[in-house]
Nucleic acid binder design. Structure first.
Length: 864
RNA sequence: GGGCACGUAGAUCAGCGGAAGAUCGCUGCUUUCGCAAAGCAGAGGUCGGGGGUUCAAAUCCCCCCGUGUCCA
C-alpha cells in the first residue's frame, strides 16, 4: 500500500501528524505527541480504573449510543444477521459484520439492505477460545458494531475521509475521549482476493476499531481497482463498554451482574468462560444450530461440554439451564428472539448433556478394562493413551486418570499434542459457487424482469430477446424459473426450441436451449413452460414450507431447514434435530401438514422491506439462508409459516394436494432428512406402495392386513428349517463318526494315544467338525482326508500331548504338494489338484505313529 | 469436510492369522411350600456388508454402511 492511501484530507484538516511507532515501527496518525501507537502491546492499558470515555456505558447503552450516532448521520440501522452463515459455503459462522454482505452485495450482484448502514452484528471467533477468561478481553462471541458504505462508480456514498471523520467524531464528541489520545495506525487488510488500506484505532492501549477500505482486487502481482469499493469497519462493542467503565477485565464490564453472580461460586476465569459460553450458546441455538459432531454443530457441542465440565467439577454449581436463562434474559433486552424458546432450548441442551454423560460413562468403563488388562500384562497406561482417548472417546484427561490405578502425569502440552495428531489432515476443500459453463453477458444488456415472482400461473408469454450467446438466450422478461433455492429449473419451449435449463446469472436469467439459438436481438419470441413439471415443482416447494412449519410445531422451534431439494419426482428437507424422529412424531407431522393442506389456507407471495418483514416475522424467515437486499420476497402461509423465498408457490394450500412422507433418515449427527412427495406424485407414491403391499400379500398368500403375521410365520419357518438342516448335518457327521469308529482299520492305539485315520467325502469345514467329534476324549488323534474344490484336504486334530497336529501336517504336506499349517491341536493342508491324497494320508499316519510311539509307546502296540 | 476409534450371542465386552469365547440375561433340571439364591445342563453367532490377500481371515488390505469422538 502506498503512503498516499492513508494521507487523508481529514487528518490534515484536523491537524493530525503522521509518526512511526518506536515499538512496532508502524506509521500512525495522531493529534497528540505519542512516540508509539496507542495499542497493546506497544503500550500498557491506561484505562483500567481511569475510563477513557466521559461516562460509563453498560453494554446495551453503548450499542444504542453507537447505532444512534450513525443513524443521526444518515445511516440506516440494520438488524443483526444470524450467527450461522448459512448463505455462505466457505465459513460456518458470521465472523465479522461484513460477512453479512458477502459475497452478493460486495460483488455488486445485489444491492445492500441500506446504504450507508449501521449494524451491531454478533460474531463468533473460535480461534480465541483458549484466551477466553484468560486475557481479560477475548470472547467466543462478541458484537462487531459497524458502519458500512458501498460505493458504485455511479453512486459514491463515502469513503476513507468521511469514515475516519465519523469514527473520530464518535470517539471524541459522542463518547468524550481525549482527541489527542487516539492513534490511527496504518495497516494493510487483505482477504478473499481483495485488499485495501486500513486504519487501526487505538486508545489508551486498547485497539477499539478497525477501519478497512476494500479497494483493490489482487490480480497476480498487480492490483486492479474494484468496481465496488466498500467501507468495512469493525468496532468492538465489548471493548467500548470496557473502555467506558475501566474495569479490571472486559468480562466485568460486559456481563456485569451475571458475571458477579457466577463469581460467588467460581474463580474469575471459570466464571468468565461460563458466561461467555452461555451467551454464544444462546445465540447459536437460537439461530438453529443443534449440537453435533461436525460442522457448526460441533462448536455448539464444544461450548456446551466445556461448560458442563466446569459445572461438574464445582460443588454447589448452579444448573447450566439457569446460567443460560440468566444470559438469555440479558441478551433479549436487545435481541428479543434470543430467549423466546426457552423450553425448547433446554431440551436441546438436556439431550446434549445426556449424550455427553453417556460418552463419558462408556469411556470410563473402557478405560477401566484397558487398565486392568494392561496391568495384568505388565504394562501401564501412557500419556499417549490419554491423548488417544481424548481424541477418539472424547474423555478429558483429568477424567480419564480417575479410572487408572497408576496413571501417567497429564502432559502440560496435552492439547497441543492432540493438535499435532491432526496436523497431517487435509484442509477442508473450499469450493467456490460453481457457475457451470455460463457465458459472460455484457454489462450493457438490460436486466431480466422476473415475472414468476408475481404470477406463478402464467406459463405462456411473449418477450423480446435482449442477448444471445450460443444456446443461451436472455429475454427482457421471463416466467421461466431458474434453478435456485433448492428448486430445480423449469423446462419448456422458446419459439420452437426446447429450453433444457434456466439459470440466474447476475441480473439476468439465461435460458439454455437444446441447440444454438436462431434468434436475433430484439426479436419477439413466445415462451411456453412445461406445465406438469412446473405444477409439480410448485407443489413440492409449497409442501416443503408446510412441512417445515409442521416440523417446528411438532418437534420444537430448534428445527431449522438445513437444506432442501425440490425436484419433479420427490422433494427433500434436511432439518436440524437432536434425535431420530419417533414413529409417533412422524405420524403427527404428516397429519398436521395434511390438515393444513385441507384447510386451504391462502399462500401469499409478496415483497416487503427487510426491516419491516424482520420485525413482523422474526429470524425464522431465513430458513433457506439469509438473503441480502432491501426487499425480501416473503412467502406466507397464512397463520402458519413465513419464509423469505424466491421460489414458485401455490396460492392456496389445498393445491398441494396431499403430502406423503416416504423416508426419514438421520443423514448426520444433528440433521434429519425427510423425503416426501405431494400432488400427483404423492398419489403415485401411495399407489406404488399399495401395489407393493398387495403384491407382497399375494406372494405370501395372505390378505394385506395379515402381512406382518404372515411374515412372522414365514420367518419362523425359515428359522425352523435352518435349525433342522443344522441338526441333520450334525446327525450326518455323528453317523460318519460312528461308522469310522466301528471300522477296525481306522483305529490304532499306541500307548496312551489312539490314532483314527480315515478318508471321507467331506470338505474342510466338515472335516474339522468331524475331527471334534472323534477327539472328544483325551489322547485321540484324528487324521482325516477329504476334498474341496477338486483339491485334497488333510485335517489333523489332536488331544494327545505326544502328537502335535501341525507337526504331522508339516510332515505329510509334501506328499501331495500341499501347503498348510495350524497349531498342535488342529492343522490343515490343502494339496494341488490331482496330487495323491492317499500318500499324504499315509505320510501323516506315519508321522503321527512316530510321535505317539516315540514317547515310550507300549511295546507291541505298533503294527507295520 | 478431514483424522482417529469402534461395529463379535438379547445386553456389556474379550479374542486381533490356525477348531468362535467370558459375564449378565434366557431355557431346563436339582434344591425350595413359594420367592430370592446356589449348583448343574442347555439354547442362542451369515464376528456390520461387499471385494481382495492367504493352505487358512472375526483377525491383514481395499471399498461401502452404521456409531462415537476429535479437529476445521
Amino acid at each position: 500500500m502506498e503512503d498516499a492511501e492513508y494521507d487523508l484530507a481529514f487528518f490534515h484538516r484536523a491537524g493530525f501528524r503522521r509518526r512511526a511507532c518506536t515499538v512496532c515501527g508502524a506509521a500512525f496518525w495522531t493529534l497528540g505527541d505519542h512516540d508509539r501507537c496507542q495499542e497493546a502491546p506497544c503500550r500498557d492499558y491506561g484505562f483500567l480504573g481511569r475510563p477513557g470515555f466521559a461516562r460509563a456505558y453498560e453494554t446495551h447503552a453503548m450499542r444504542e449510543a453507537y447505532l444512534r450516532y450513525f443513524e443521526q448521520r444518515g445511516h440506516a440501522r440494520v438488524r443483526r444477521y444470524p450467527t450461522v452463515a448459512r448463505w455462505r459455503n466457505d465459513v460456518f459462522f458470521t465472523q465479522a459484520s461484513i460477512y453479512d454482505f458477502q459475497p452478493w452485495v460486495t460483488s455488486g450482484a445485489i444491492p445492500p439492505p441500506a446504504n450507508p448502514l449501521t449494524i451491531s452484528q454478533p460474531v463468533l471467533r473460535f480461534i480465541d477460545l483458549e484466551e477466553v477468561g484468560r486475557s481479560g478481553r477475548h470472547f467466543t462471541l462478541f458484537e462487531m458494531m459497524a458502519h458500512h458504505a458501498f460505493n458504485r462508480p455511479d453512486h459514491e456514498v463515502y469513503f476513507k475521509d468521511r469514515t475516519v471523520e465519523l469514527c473520530h467524531g464518535l470517539l471524541t464528541e459522542e463518547l468524550g475521549a481525549d482527541p489527542t489520545g487516539i492513534t490511527y495506525k496504518e495497516e494493510v487488510w487483505e482477504g478473499g482476493g481483495n485488499l485495501g488500506p486500513s486504519l487501526s484505532v487505538g486508545l489508551l492501549g486498547l485497539e477499539l476499531a478497525t477501519l478497512v477500505f476494500m479497494e483493490y482486487v489482487r490480480d497476480g502481482t498487480s492490483l486492479r481497482p474494484m468496481p465496488l469499493t466498500v467501507v468495512d469497519t469493525g468496532y468492538g462493542l465489548e471493548r467500548f463498554a470496557w473502555m467506558s467503565q475501566g474495569t479490571n477485565t472486559a468480562y466485568e464490564a460486559v456481563f456485569g451482574r451475571e458475571y458477579e453472580e457466577l463469581r460467588r461460586t467460581f474463580p474469575p476465569r471459570e466464571a468468565a468462560i461460563l458466561i461467555d459460553h452461555a451467551r454464544a450458546i444462546n445465540f447459536l441455538l437460537t439461530d438453529g444450530v443443534v449440537p453435533s459432531n461436525s460442522k457448526e454443530g460441533y462448536f455448539a457441542r464444544l461450548l456446551l461440554r466445556r461448560s458442563i465440565r466446569i459445572l461438574q467439577r464445582t460443588p454447589e454449581a448452579p444448573e447450566l439451564s439457569a446460567i443460560l436463562d440468566a444470559s438469555a434474559r440479558e441478551i433479549a433486552r436487545a435481541f428479543p428472539e434470543v430467549g423466546e424458546h426457552r423450553d425448547d432450548l433446554h431440551r436441546v441442551v438436556a439431550a446434549e448433556a445426556e449424550r455427553f454423560a453417556e460418552s463419558i460413562e462408556r469411556a470410563r468403563a473402557m478405560i477401566r478394562r484397558y487398565d486392568e488388562r494392561t496391568r495384568a500384562g505388565g504394562g501401564r497406561v501412557t500419556e499417549d493413551d490419554l491423548i488417544q482417548w481424548y481424541d477418539s472417546l472424547g474423555i478429558p484427561p483429568d477424567l480419564a486418570v480417575e479410572e487408572v490405578r497408576d496413571p501417567p502425569p497429564i502432559p502440560d502440552d496435552f492439547y497441543a499434542r492432540v493438535a499435532t495428531r491432526h496436523e497431517s489432515e487435509r484442509p477442508a476443500t473450499e469450493y467456490a459457487e460453481v457457475v457451470e459453463g455460463l457465458p459472460d453477458v455484457p454489462g450493457t444488456v438490460p436486466a431480466t424482469e422476473v415475472l414468476y415472482y408475481l404470477d406463478p400461473y402464467t406459463l405462456a408469454f411473449e418477450a423480446h430477446v435482449v442477448w444471445v450467446g450460443g444456446p443461451f438466450v436472455a429475454l427482457d422478461r421471463t416466467y421461466f424459473y431458474p434453478t435456485g433455492g433448492g428448486q430445480v429449473t423449469d423446462t419448456g419451449q422458446l419459439g420452437d426450441l426446447a429450453v433444457v435449463d434456466v439459470a440466474r446469472r447476475g441480473p439476468w436469467i439465461l435460458h439454455r436451449l437444446e441447440r444454438p439459438a436462431p434468434f436475433a436481438v430484439g426479436e419477439r419470441v413466445r415462451g411456453r413452460i412445461d406445465r406438469p413439471r412446473r405444477v409439480q415443482l410448485m407443489q413440492h416447494h409449497t409442501a416443503t414450507h408446510l412441512l417445515n412449519g409442521a416440523l417446528r410445531e411438532v418437534l420444537g422451534p430448534h428445527v431449522w431447514q438445513a437444506g432442501a431439494y425440490k425436484g419433479p419426482e420427490a422433494a427433500r428437507i434436511d432439518i436440524t434435530h437432536y434425535k431420530p424422529l419417533s414413529r409417533d412424531e412422524l405420524r403427527r407431522v404428516e397429519r398436521r401438514v395434511n390438515e393444513i393442506v385441507r384447510e386451504d389456507r391462502p399462500v401469499k407471495s409478496y415483497f416487503e422491506g427487510r426491516s419491516a418483514a424482520e420485525r413482523r416475522f422474526g429470524f425464522t424467515l431465513y430458513q433457506g439462508g439469509a438473503v441480502p437486499g432491501k426487499e425480501l420476497r416473503i412467502v406466507e402461509v397464512e397463520g402458519f409459516d413465513v419464509e423469505a423465498c424466491g421460489g414458485t408457490h401455490c396460492t392456496h394450500t389445498s393445491e398441494v394436494g396431499a403430502i406423503a412422507i416416504s423416508d426419514v433418515e438421520r443423514i448426520q449427527d444433528g440433521i434429519v432428512r425427510l423425503t416426501y412427495s405431494s400432488g400427483e406424485r404423492a398419489l403415485d407414491l401411495r399407489d406404488e406402495h399399495e401395489e407393493i403391499l398387495k403384491e407382497a400379500a399375494r406372494r405370501l398368500g395372505v390378505p394385506v392386513p395379515q402381512l406382518p403375521d404372515g411374515i412372522d410365520r414365514l420367518l419362523g419357518e425359515i428359522e425352523e428349517s435352518r435349525q433342522r438342516a443344522r441338526a441333520r448335518r450334525k446327525e450326518d457327521l455323528g453317523a460318519t463318526a460312528a461308522r469310522l469308529l466301528s471300522d477296525p482299520t481306522v483305529a490304532e492305539t499306541l500307548g496312551a494315544t489312539t490314532l483314527l485315520t480315515g478318508q471321507v467325502d467331506l470338505g474342510r469345514a466338515e472335516l474339522m467338525e468331524l475331527s471334534r467329534l472323534l477327539t472328544k476324549a483325551p489322547g485321540r488323534v484324528a487324521i482325516l482326508a477329504g476334498e474341496e474344490d477338486g483339491r485334497g484336504v488333510l485335517f489333523v486334530g489332536s488331544t494327545s500331548p505326544q502328537v502335535a497336529a501341525n507337526e504331522v501336517v508339516r510332515a505329510a504336506a509334501p506328499a501331495f504338494d500341499g501347503k498348510g499349517g495350524g497349531n498342535p491341536a488342529a492343522a490343515t493342508a490343502v494339496g494341488e489338484p490331482g496330487a495323491p491324497l492317499a500318500h499324504a494320508l499315509r505320510a501323516a499316519r506315519e508321522s503321527a505313529r512316530r510321535a505317539a510311539g516315540a514317547d515310550g509307546g507300549a511295546p507291541g502296540a505298533a503294527r507295520p
